[in-house]
Design a protein around this nucleic acid. Structure first.
Lengths: 377, 377
DNA sequence: AAGCTGCGTGAATCATCTC
DNA sequence: TGAGATGATTCACGCAGCT
């Protein structure tokens, strides 16, 4: 019974050890109650991924009629906003109890809950250090075209009180970001592939497992090796796994015994790195994509401007406010209309279309380069 | 009549116009009071860039949030948060009063105030549609290296209540983003250069002037031409300027007479896009409904014609004179039978079914377009 | 072998009109 | 007002299976 062995080793550190904080482990129980039972001011970092209170009703299907597997678990259901606020205030107060005076707290959420969390944090006296945006590189699209694709989640990073000291490993963050100062917007893929923990049937074990890359950055930024990291909603144990790998002590609280068991097994297989610098990912830098519409938004091209197509400007089209362009018989993107007027299967609109400036025809790609230069800073 | 007096130059285009909503203009006064004095349910869009915290000294004049140095040790945090909440609840309630039932509201803020704004929005019954992240391409760096560089601001987009309808120009947003659906994270530079309004001394006239690109996307996404756009904290008039250019009506409220004057002057020089079609959403929804039976009535499809279903024409059905179609085991509308033969819960029959013409399969939607073209002319 | 294609899926507050 | 009909709507990425 590999699992049993792993279970006991990780969860009950040593028989003679009566202080649960001396070693890492998983505690089964409700977050607020467990934290209240812990010694005060004993934790350097709290990372919390609480229920979001999504309030999903009915079901949603993709255009191909497949069903979206929404988060409808009982633990995400609350009777009202007030009930969610009570729950939130309760566990945040308990987190405040276990947090050292110079410790910090992270909470992740979406627009469903994060405003309530942030306001209650301020009400309780926490001091907000940053709000961080996790931009997902591969989010689920909006299938009905009724809103913007919900492509990010928000993290709040807070110190225990105004004026409190806090740990921020500025140079580690710079190193992690090609020697550029780390910004408040992080581009990280959602958790999938082999990193995603599966159950016995091969389905995802937990509906909201967070990527290790996210926790890597959080823990590396705001703790030192040996610090105590607490996750009161541990789920399948991403926080413990990364904490162990980065040589931090850790405590996990999880109400669901199945999740708790998965965490113990997962952490058991994690090897702490010998040198944390070796696992610091290099941020990829791609040439940023610049849609044509952005030139219109930014006033580099006015709506109504005439674009001239081809080397001699044989073709013409007019720019709409939304970035589409219009000829006598068609409307569409610079690429589509470029192909259309040439009778070609495809076309790179950036090189095909030109604007007139000082009696010369200039490819619109020149304007794109200007936007990219701005984006570089 | 304070309001009448406040309306001037830009705001009263014709002397005999006594209805401020009939035309655009700037009203000088306090946001909540002015909105309460306006007719109920008269505005399609509210865009608000409120002060971060009205009660905190210096806050307004310092957009880089550098007040952590203990300048304001004296103020009592709890009282100030409460005062800010009262202020926020007051103007949001007033905004709710002027907003049409199918109108929407945008608020922009930073982590200092946005959580309070979002929570109060939910408390007042607004229904959050998205939170949008404005990622600044050229943010101010964090000089002390104690936190992450604060490189974004947050916008909340909300409908008036749960279940309320709202405008979202999905196709315009797609067009603006190279035919990919628009995400909740927007990359736009901060306002600078020639766009930045300067005062008589050549200094920036307003500390937190927003870029026109931001408003371009907001207004294009969530209004139609001719809609009424209200900005209760207009500052130097970015919202009015973009609204006018995009052929929306607009109302600006601004407490500071100097800012109000700058707005009037700025808007005076804005030229609306000449061709109205360039600023319209590509509203497929507005196209007249054409029942399939009309194609039969008009002789575009003969009774008895065979329809071929799917890209390869795997499925077949025969057209009846009444516009229903028939397979071996069922009769019904193009949609119902399309769903039936695929075993799908629903189906868009216009795109699913094809007719044979010159050895090619043509979607029947092409015939519908022909009918619509006839109806136009 | 390397490359191509098709399929599955991710914290989702995801309709509107007519009768 | 409620029920029923109409018909609009998806992006990135990993992986399995195939050429």
């Amino acid at each position: 019974m590999v699992r049993q062995a792993a279970l006991s080793r990780e969860s009950v550190p040593t028989p003679d050890n009566t202080d649960p904080l001396a070693e890492s482990g998983v505690c089964e129980g409700e977050a607020a109650a467990m934290m209240r039972a812990m010694p005060a001011k004993s934790v350097d970092l709290v990372f919390a991924d609480p229920p979001y209170n999504l309030q999903l009703e009915g079901e949603l299907t993709r255009p191909n009629h497949t069903r979206v597997d929404g988060v409808d678990d009982a633990w995400d259901q609350f009777d009202s906003l007030e009930a969610y606020d009570r729950f939130t205030r309760s566990w945040l107060q308990a987190a405040r109890h276990v947090l050292k005076d110079d410790g910090t707290l992270w909470v992740i959420g979406s627009y469903h809950n994060i405003f309530r969390v942030g306001a209650i944090l301020q009400d309780l006296g926490f001091w907000l250090l940053n709000d961080i945006v996790w931009n997902k590189t591969n989010p689920m699209p909006n299938f009905r075209g009724r809103r913007f694709a919900n492509a990010h989640e928000t993290l709040i990073w807070a110190a225990k009180s105004k004026g409190a000291r806090h740990t921020f490993n500025h140079h580690s963050m710079k190193a992690l970001n090609d020697d550029l100062q780390m910004r408040s917007d992080w581009e990280i893929p959602v958790c999938g592939g082999s990193e995603r923990i599966k159950d016995a049937h091969g389905n995802k074990a937990h509906p909201t497992q967070k990527p290790e890359a996210l926790l890597h950055r959080v823990i590396l930024a705001s703790t030192q090796p040996g610090d105590m990291v607490l996750d009161p909603f541990a789920g399948t144990g991403t926080t413990p796994a990364v904490a162990k790998r980065l040589r931090r002590r850790w405590l996990a609280i999880e109400n669901d015994p199945d999740y708790a068991a998965l965490t113990r097994e997962r952490v058991h297989h994690v090897q702490p790195v010998k040198d944390t610098r070796l696992v610091e990912a290099q941020a990829r830098r791609r040439q940023p994509r610049v849609p044509f519409g952005w030139l219109v938004e930014r006033g580099l091209i006015e709506p109504g401007t005439i674009l001239h197509g081809g080397a001699k400007g044989q073709h013409q089209a007019k720019v709409r406010a939304d970035g589409n362009i219009v000829t006598t018989d068609a409307t569409g993107s610079i690429h589509k209309i470029g192909a259309h007027v040439q009778g070609a299967p495809s076309c790179n609109g950036w090189q095909f279309w030109h604007i007139e400036q000082d009696d010369k025809l200039i490819p619109i790609d020149v304007l794109r380069q200007r936007v990219r230069a701005e984006m570089e800073g």
